[in-house]
Design a protein around this nucleic acid. Sequence first.
DNA 1: GCCGTTTTCGGCCCGACTGTTTTCAGTCG
Length: 569
Amino acid sequence: MDKKQVAEILEEIGTLLELKGEISFKFQAYFRAARSIDALTDEIDVYVKEGRLREIPGVGEGLAEKITELVTTGKLKYLEELKKSFPESLFQLLQIQGLGPKKVKVLYEKLKIKSVADLEKAARAGTLSNLDGFGEKTSENILKGIEHLKKHSGYSLYSNALAEAEKIITHLSKHPKTIRISIAGSLRRHKEIIRDLDILVSSKNPEAIMETFTTLDSVETVTAKGETKSSVLLKSGIQVDLRVVTDTEFPYALHHFTGSKEHNTAMRARAKQMEMKMNEYGLFKEPSDKLIPCKDEEEIFEKLDLSYIPPELRENMGEIEAGARRAVPLLIEEKDIRGVFHTHSLYSDGAATIEDMAKEAQRLGLKYIGLSDHSRSAAYAHGMEPERIKKQWKEIDEINKRLKGIRILKGSEVDILGDGSLDYDNAILAELDFVIVSVHSRFTMSETEMTKRIIKAIQNKYTTMLGHMTGRLLLGREGYHINHKEIFQAAKDYGVIIELNANPHRFDVDWRYGRDLKELEIKVSINPDAHKVDGIADYRFGVGIARKGWLEKKDVFNTMGLEQIMKFL
DNA sequence: GCCGTTTTCGGCCCGACTGTTTTCAGTCG
């Protein structure tokens, strides 16, 4: 049983306890432990074997015992008992907007409602309003919630969420009553997938802003509208929350609504320790309740005796401790990127000519672009036979002569075949400036086999970097099973770079491994995996993910200038 | 159920909005 499964089970227990009506501190302890376990980089069985479970924040005597039972036997008596009181199908009901544990409990106990289907039937029949605390409006909202649940998965890719947010920001920033405006929430923290959008505005006239916001063309329904907060569902299915505060409150509110929830909780606890109180309206001295003036987020951190913590790091994964030690890394920035690798052209499955791709890279201020069309086995992507790649080299030479200020590097995204060998022979590989090796087939191998396969490819002396390490497609498919530790060790031993694929569908390698890579001094290359001209700029998303993974300029391969890159290659 | 440079017991972050109520519980972030 891996840490993800353990975390899910703890969360399940927490939810069951919540349904049961246990005090919040008890079930929240389960949620907290679940989050810390999910955030571990080592596997959970290591902690069990070495008896180190209690080192995990939020895991005490009781949970350590339960986790040990879970990991060693694969089962947990306590959970089996709990499950007897509530059927698992109730969890679906909790997905419905406006339904929490208390209401779900009533629905189950009074009306024997066990599933979304049961609930829909009851709501339509009008039987819900007989229950205490359920009125006409509640039934209506439940039906709306079910409708929404059916239509939308609930998550969006980062890039799509950003595009929606920017449209709203553009609109609201033109509003004469807007003073300051910012994206907040998980989008500002650059999470890889986004559930809803948070936007913060400061204004002297909140009502006017709310009115404009709730009547935007892109709004499907308004789910809440108050003096300081409104929520809407966009036609695209994304939920947007808007908060409006005074301009004095803006920095505190920005910090608050950027989150994460876990980061905020830890920050408030710190404030409390320092005899201060923190909420979205300010930082206050206790017990006088006097506001501690801060003009921006930087000052808030300062007052709490912390270095500035960039939004991407605010996951309560060690950033506050780092802030206290003045050890927050100076994160990589967009301007540090000097060139990109992993781009495709018409020679394989790309949609643009080599020259157009190069010109776009140049327009973005880059100094080099590494072209890497697919190798021959990649029939799905018009992989190139050796004759065709030789033709491509000629074209690259010719364009390089003509274009000034940008250099096209000759590379390939070479398939890692089933047995770990590469899809071109050494004669071709030796001629290339760089070689990205990637898995594009036989995804369902066992972890052991897949790890062995990838390590064999890493050991090839022509391999420069490993492409999209897990092959995951966000909101699409799970990655293949690998042992990342063994792969990282091999990458270190053989001097191979690990790609951070910046395509918003991938963001692979996961940012959670950033600090492992950094510790091992493995270089990361932020690669757009561009298949068309406007895909090249995706490297910017990758920079956000790299920042989230605590990476600095020195950790990233393509922050090097052309000369250094060529020397390395 | 966890945790401790105020505590080994008694705390545990805090506020907005809705709907169903007459003063607040539930939900959400």
